[in-house]
């Protein structure tokens, strides 16, 4: 079960500069665990206190995982996962 994961620029320090990596897992949580084993440190950029970070978006086949069950969102072979940090800010 191979899933391609697109990695944003700011997280490529964990992937040796690679824009896309391959991982495995039946859910987003399992996939992140697998990616962490191969690229230590990367999970912390996506997960905080057991939940998805508020300002990081993860998409499965173009759908935000927040609408698919969050960390429990199911994955299938050939799914395309994209990780993108939110573009956000404020005046305070």
């Amino acid at each position: 079960m191979a899933i391609e994961v697109k990695i944003p620029t700011i997280m490529r320090t964990f992937t040796g500069g690679e824009k896309a990596i391959t991982g495995e897992g039946a859910t987003i949580a399992a996939l992140i665990e697998d990616l962490e084993a191969k690229h230590p440190g990367i999970a912390d950029r996506m997960v905080e206190d057991g939940a998805l970070r508020r300002f990081v978006n993860i998409y499965v086949n173009d759908e935000d995982v927040r609408f698919l069950g969050g960390l429990e969102a199911p994955l299938s072979d050939g799914d395309e996962v994209v990780v993108l940090p939110a573009v956000a800010g404020g005046s305070h």
Partner: peptide, 12 residues
């Protein structure tokens, strides 16, 4: 007036 955020779908 004090915060901005791109919509997640539009961002992708």
């Amino acid at each position: 007036p004090t915060f901005y955020e791109f919509d997640s779908g539009e961002l992708l």
